[in-house]
Simulated scan of single mutants.
Amino acid sequence: MVDFDVVELPEADHVAEGEAAPDFTRPLVGEEYWTDTALSDIDGPVALVFFPMDGAFPATYIWNEIRDREWGRGPSDHVTVVGVSVSTPYEHKTFLEERGMDYELFSDPGAGVAELYGVVHDLDGMTGVREHRPAVFLLDDEHAVEYAWVASEWPDFPDYDEVESHIERL
C-alpha cells in the first residue's frame, strides 16, 4: 500500500535535447573529500542526475538503482555519472558512505543549478523550500544535451533501461 500522495508537477521548462548544458561550479563531493568543480571540468560524456535531498526515499531509490546497474562502470565506463541535489557536502558524504557508492555528487543547497536546468521544485506547504525534481541529462563530449528526462509527478523515476540505451550511444 502506498503511504504518500502522487502529485502532478507543473510543466518544467527544462534544458532540452540539442541545447548546450549550462555550466556551473559547485562543491563536488566524493568518497574522500570535496572541492569546487565546474561541470566543464569533467571530460567526456556525462550523465547528470538531479535528485531530491539525501535521505528522501526517491534519492535512495534512484542511487541504489544507478549503483546496482553500475552506470559509469563496465560497458558504460565511458560516461561519468554525477549527481546534483540541495544537500550539503556533509550530507552527501554520509549518503555516499551509507549507499556504498563511489560516485560524486554536486552540492546545490540554493537550488541555483536546478533553476538553470529548469528542474527546481517548490515544496508544497513550505515557503521558500525548494529541491530538485528527479531528472537525467545525458551530455555528449562537448556537453550538449543528447537525452533529457524530467519528472512530471512526485514521486517519479526515469525508465532506467531507456537511459541505459542512450548511454550506450554516447
Rank of each mutant, 00 (worst) to 15 (best):
G30T: 05
N64G: 03
L116I: 05
T127F: 10
H166Q: 12
E70M: 09
R130N: 11
H14V: 06
A144T: 13
R69M: 11
E11C: 04
T88Y: 11
H166L: 01
E91F: 11
N64F: 08
E142T: 13
G110P: 03
A144I: 09
V150G: 00
L39E: 02
G112C: 10
V79K: 08
P75S: 10
V150P: 00
V46E: 07
T80I: 06
H121R: 14
G30F: 00
S85E: 06
A21W: 04
S85K: 07
D108W: 09
V84K: 07
A144V: 12
D102W: 10
E164G: 01
T35E: 14
D54A: 15
N64K: 14
M126L: 14
V113I: 13
H78T: 14
A144D: 08
A21M: 05
T25H: 03
M53Y: 11
V15P: 10
V86C: 05
L138R: 04
P22C: 02
A47R: 04
V113H: 11
R130Y: 13
I167G: 00
G112N: 12
R69V: 06
L105C: 08
E162P: 02
L139N: 03
E11I: 14
F106S: 08
L123V: 13
E31M: 08
W34M: 02
M101D: 11
D36L: 07
